Amino acid sequence: MSCTLGTRGRSEIREVWATEKLDWLPQRQIWKKLHSLICVKVQKKSQEKNSCEIRYFISSLPANAERLAKEVRNQWSIENKLRWQLDVNFREDLSRVRKGNGAENLSIVRWATLNLLQKWIIMA
């Protein structure tokens, strides 16, 4: 499956492959509901630079490249929204904590706080 996206002078080409043929994968027994393996290739082009990324995912869903492409995109969308929340609400990008475990500890506290706030808002 392949699609081309373009916004603000940038273009992005995504190619997605999925397979259920996992006999070659020694770790397949570790994941009880493993059903498919997904490969996503993303090529981004802009006036400033070009890049190519390849990502691999495991899934409990059947190997339907079109459906899995949407699921992967949705998951990244959720992750990006969470990162945006952390940056805007907690100003995570401005943090200057760098020594020891401080940065990791603060990150855990921020994530936990954000999760609690989201659950509290849903319950209210």
Rank of each mutant, 00 (worst) to 15 (best):
R28D: 07
I30D: 06
I38N: 03
V42H: 03
V42F: 04
W24R: 02
K32C: 06
P62K: 04
I38E: 03
R28C: 10
K44I: 13
V40Y: 05
K44R: 15
I58S: 04
S51Y: 08
E48G: 08
F57E: 07
L25P: 08
C39K: 12
S60N: 15
A63N: 04
D23V: 03
I58C: 12
R28S: 14
K45L: 06
P62Q: 02
H35T: 15
E48K: 15
I30F: 07
P26S: 00
V40E: 09
R55N: 13
E53P: 05
K33Y: 07
D23W: 06
C39F: 03
E53D: 13
N50H: 10
L37H: 13
D23Y: 11
K49R: 10
C39E: 13
S36Q: 04
S36K: 01
R28A: 10
K32Q: 11
A63P: 13
I38M: 06
Q47Y: 05
W24D: 11
W24I: 00
F57M: 05
K41W: 06
I38L: 04
I30M: 03
R55S: 15
Q27D: 12
K49M: 04
K32D: 12
S46L: 02
C39Q: 12
V42P: 02
A63H: 05
S59W: 08
K44D: 09
K45I: 10
I54C: 11
P62W: 00
K33C: 02
K45N: 08
V40W: 13
P62F: 00
L37I: 11
L25D: 06
K44H: 07
A63C: 08
Q47L: 04
Y56W: 13
D23A: 12
Q47P: 03
S59G: 07
C52Y: 06
S36I: 01
L61K: 14
Q43S: 15
F57K: 01
L34C: 01
I30G: 01
D23I: 04
N50M: 11
P26I: 00
Q27S: 13
Q29N: 12
S46N: 02
N50T: 12
S59K: 06
K49Q: 10
I38H: 06
F57S: 02
L37T: 01
H35M: 04
A63V: 07
K44C: 10
S36L: 01
S59Y: 10
L61Q: 15
Q29F: 08
P62Y: 00
Q47F: 03
E53T: 13
K45C: 06
P26F: 02
V42T: 15
K45G: 00
Q43C: 08
S51K: 01
D23M: 02
S59E: 08
